[in-house]
Amino acid sequence: MPTGASQILFVTALPAETKPLVQHFGLKRQTQTGKFVSFSNAKGLALVQTGVGRIPAAVATTYALQTLTGSVQVINLGLAGCRDADTPIGSIFRVNKIHELNTGRTFFLDMLTRGSLPETGCITADQPVDVWPDTTMEDETLCDMEASAVLQAARQLGPADHFHCLKVVSDYGLSGGPKWMAEWVESLLQPHLSVLESLVEQLALLEEPATSTLSPDEDHLLKELIEYARLTTTQANQLKTTMVRASLRGLELPPLLTQTLANPAPQHARDRKAWLTRLRSLLLES
């Protein structure tokens, strides 16, 4: 898998949903995670298995996100009931909105990246749903027990566009009596692993918007200049803003500013102010 700007965190509920992913992506069980069942590999993929229901899902997702650093794309993958008995068992959908039955809130996902999967809405319920509630909209055709919680946890700790949700149809309501055998659950997910892999590759390659426009070298130089001239916080911010502007306009900062460090440093407040004014003028006019 190519190295991208984002890590990927899979969130599953059941061991049988976890197993195919662990095998396919070569994930290793993490041992320092207490009660949380989590896996990862060296390519920036991680997985947390939450258990069933909203509260375990929110807690485990929050835990997993706290252990990861940098930009993380969260993918909730799992089984879901379907209200439409014409939809074949084993069909996979990309979820574009999640209606939380308990609170009546609807959460929308940013559908920014291209994909070939059919889309639908999902409701998250605290109990298995046999009779579809009247409040459900026509495009909310799936029902699970975790998605809204995973979404809310992910949004607390990351941007809205970093949450994705894929659901595979397992049944048409509990009274229909699915066979919740581990092998059967795995067999439902197995055919979709290549689609999942494509999504992972696509997300891992998305470039994150720049958060700082100074390169590490420029940032180091800024720190040196601040220390050299003993700038106040306000002065340091002014210098940074000017350096960012110059850098964005394509100016090579290190050759220009390194020369400055060779001169005697300003000693008094008045000298510092004049030094900074000269330096900023130099950058603004270059």
């Binding site: 609807t106 959460f107 929308f108 889309e119 809405g121 909209m137 949004r155 941007p159 809205a160 566009d161």
Partner: peptide, 16 residues
């Protein structure tokens, strides 16, 4: 995608 009130979609927190 059907929505009950567009503001639930448009005013979501965390959008970029």
């Amino acid at each position: 995608v059907w929505v009950k009130d567009y503001r639930h979609f448009f005013n979501r927190p965390g959008q970029r």
